[in-house]
Design a protein around this nucleic acid. Sequence first.
DNA 1: CTGATAGTGGGGAAAAGTGGGGGATTATAT
DNA 2: ATATAATCCCCCACTTTTCCCCACTATCAG
Lengths: 145, 145
Amino acid sequence: MFIGEYHHSIDDKGRLIIPCRFREKLGDKFIVTRGIENCLFVYSLESWNNIVNKLETLPFTKKDARQFIRFFLSGATIAEFDNQGRINISSPLISYAGIYKECVIIGTGDRIEIWSEESWNDFFTSAKDSMSDIAENLFNESVNL
Amino acid sequence: MFIGEYHHSIDDKGRLIIPCRFREKLGDKFIVTRGIENCLFVYSLESWNNIVNKLETLPFTKKDARQFIRFFLSGATIAEFDNQGRINISSPLISYAGIYKECVIIGTGDRIEIWSEESWNDFFTSAKDSMSDIAENLFNESVNL
DNA sequence: CTGATAGTGGGGAAAAGTGGGGGATTATAT
DNA sequence: ATATAATCCCCCACTTTTCCCCACTATCAG
């Protein structure tokens, strides 16, 4: 279970520290991919395999499925730690998430999310006011992701 | 499983690097064919056989089936690597995908896709805005995530 | 204060990617 | 049939990127 919020910066070589608390839960190799809403998702291999198994049931003849799979899998990379606990973020992911200097790394249960500080602040200030409404309808629908 | 996004360019001789990470999964010989949405699909022989088997279950009495099979099989060519890990793209495929200089090579699970940088950018900018909506409904149909 | 743990930055070897020359094979023309 | 042209590969050399290692700083606890 990943929880918490950490602030770190990415360096010129595209390296970013993953907070110590998250490291052992991720294992040696893990997956970084594009998330929804301008952030990156980080999954342990186990969580990732669960998602991929479900995606593989989607047919390539359906347009929405093709688009989602392209988006999600093309953004994915296998990451490993260097001796200092950092990972390399590939340049397509850097530009997607707009992380050039200050980053926010948050734990969200089964995954970690990486945000640029700017996007995170934007998201947070706008989301926090609507949280009461969002909570209201959260469990009304049939399917939960 | 093929994942990731790579940017390379095709040279004047029609040669294109396949990223190192993809090479061993493809094997010595593999298939390049026309894809849906102005890109090329690259399959290992194994995945290719799976698809062909499925296509063979379609009846030639159906017009859509005839058209799709023509499209998909007529574009197919067997490719091999040169010593530097490059492949030759035949000129019908080059003109179909419009790849003359900058290319984007992405992994999408059981296949690789080759896009011209321009087509990819067009696809991506429009897809990323609709991704939130697509994700919302993706598993509402028969399959649940 | 001191030692241990976490985070930051940079140099250099190795791997990956790019471009071009030249020989062999195939095609074309006289 | 032979000379010329075109194409396809294979190889070599150069450039760029990636990754690994080391050294330094910051923070915290005893």
